[in-house]
Nucleic acid binder design. Structure first.
Length: 272
DNA sequence: AGTGCGACCCGAACGC
DNA sequence: TGCGTTCGGGTCGCAC
């Protein structure tokens, strides 16, 4: 399940591989994945080239001449680079073939990922991009900002951390890890958090996301980056997917509960 | 406006 | 063994 660190890893990896290569052909095998007009999608991309790859939250933004290709990997989306002669696999849904005979293949077992081609001038007006909250590293991500946003939320803080309009890019793994590092019980209502707790979330978010990006993300389930680089952050996980294992700080058993339908892991002693 | 929930998917895990 | 059922998870859209 790619979150911000995984998306950043994919971005950095792909940037070394696909920029400024002419796109010879686009093959769409699962049309529902494309949110924009299908004919435009093919005609605009063919003959075009990727000039840069940016990121906003969990969205990857491929820059083309005059357009951006927005992609969201959701849970299982992956990009692979392959020789175009290799046979297509079952879950390779969108294939971009470059004129050096390599493919950029979008692979997604669950078919949850989406792609959207937009004109450059429309980027900031695109709903998905417009509503993204502060990036984990932004200087605008402050305790004051969080306190104000949280004050309107009676939901558990765990649920609120997943709200992309507040902090952009956190998913289930890092939400669990941030709350452990900040020593906050995931069930606590967001509106009840103190200034100090908001500050702890800012610091924990900075620290964890920086570390996760440095380590190439976290490999959970099927996630691998485009070059097959394995994320190493899983070795650093303190609570996520560690149900019944001892807390690395106090030895108490890590608990797994559902909050808002999402698996939540925490230490009942460290996060009272 | 905030909240809750089904829909989108399909492989893995589980039940019988 | 083999079949059917349940579950998960990010985001959107809709109902309240």
């Amino acid at each position: 399940m790619p979150e911000i660190a995984e998306v950043e890893t994919v971005r950095n990896t792909l940037k070394k591989q696909i920029l400024n290569k002419k796109i010879k052909k686009v093959n769409i095998r699962y049309a529902k994945m494309i949110e924009s007009d299908l004919k435009d999608f093919v005609s605009i991309l063919e003959g075009n080239e990727f000039l840069d790859i940016k990121r906003r939250g969990k969205w990857l933004i491929f820059e083309l001449h005059d357009h951006y290709l927005l992609t969201h990997l959701r849970m299982e989306g992956k990009f692979y680079l392959k020789n175009e002669e290799l046979s297509l696999e079952k879950h390779e849904h969108i294939i971009f073939t470059f004129d050096d005979n390599t493919d950029l293949r979008y692979h997604d077992t669950r078919k949850f990922g989406r792609m959207n081609l937009i004109k450059k001038e429309d980027l900031e007006n695109t709903e998905a991009i417009k509503k993204q909250g502060e990036e984990p590293f932004s200087k605008n991500l402050t305790a004051i900002y969080l306190k104000e946003k949280f004050s309107k939320k009676k939901l558990p803080i765990k649920t609120v951390l997943l709200d992309q309009t507040i902090i952009s890019g956190l998913g289930n793994i890092y939400a669990n890890e941030v709350l452990f590092a900040a020593k906050i019980n995931p069930l606590k209502k967001a509106c009840d958090l103190s200034n100090q707790e908001c500050q702890n979330i800012v610091l924990a978010t900075n620290e964890i996301i920086e570390s996760a990006i440095k380590m190439g993300g976290t490999t959970i389930k099927s996630y691998t980056s485009s070059l097959g680089v394995t994320g190493r952050f899983q070795q650093k996980l303190m609570v996520h997917k560690r149900e019944n294992e001892p807390c690395k700080v106090c030895n108490e058993k890590i608990v797994n509960i559902k909050i808002g339908g999402r698996s939540t892991y925490y230490c009942p002693f460290c996060q009272k």
